[in-house]
Amino acid sequence: MTRINVEYTTEGSKHMQPATFLLKTTFADKDPAAHILFDYGIYTREMDMYEQILPHLAIIVREELQDTRKMFAATVNADRQRDSIIFEDLSLEQYKVACRLKKLDLVHTHLLLEKLAKFQAAGAALAERLPGIFEKNYDRGFFNKHCRGYEHIMTNVLKALSHTLELNGDLKKRYQAKIDRLVDNVMAYGERATSNNPGDFLTLAHGDLWTTNVMFQYDNKGHPTNAIFIDFQFSVWNSPAIDLHYFFSTSIHENLRLQNQTELVQFYYYKLVEALKKVNYLGKVPILFVFQQQFRARAFYAVFSSLVFEPAIVYNGKEEPSIEKFISADEEGVRLRDAVYQTEETEKKLHLILPFLDQLGLLDEM
Rank of each mutant, 00 (worst) to 15 (best):
S306T: 12
P131V: 06
V303M: 01
S84Q: 15
G149W: 12
A241T: 00
N316R: 08
P198Q: 09
Y95L: 12
E332Y: 06
D79T: 13
E51M: 09
S195R: 12
Y175G: 00
T346V: 10
A160V: 13
Y138H: 00
D31H: 15
K136V: 08
W210V: 05
Y50P: 00
I86M: 07
F216R: 01
F27A: 14
Y270E: 10
R129T: 13
Q120E: 08
R69F: 08
T75I: 15
V303E: 02
M71P: 01
A193S: 13
F356H: 10
A58I: 02
V314I: 15
L116C: 02
N280V: 03
L288W: 10
E324I: 14
G199Y: 08
N260G: 00
T9P: 11
I86N: 06
E254G: 04
S239Y: 15
L57N: 12
Y218R: 11
L37Q: 14
Y40M: 09
D48R: 02
T25S: 14
G149Q: 13
F229H: 01
L90C: 09
A58G: 07
V157F: 01
T262P: 01
I242W: 04
D31M: 15
Y138L: 03
V308I: 04
A299I: 04
E263R: 02
V303P: 04
K271I: 01
E64Y: 10
Y246C: 01
Y218E: 08
P355Q: 09
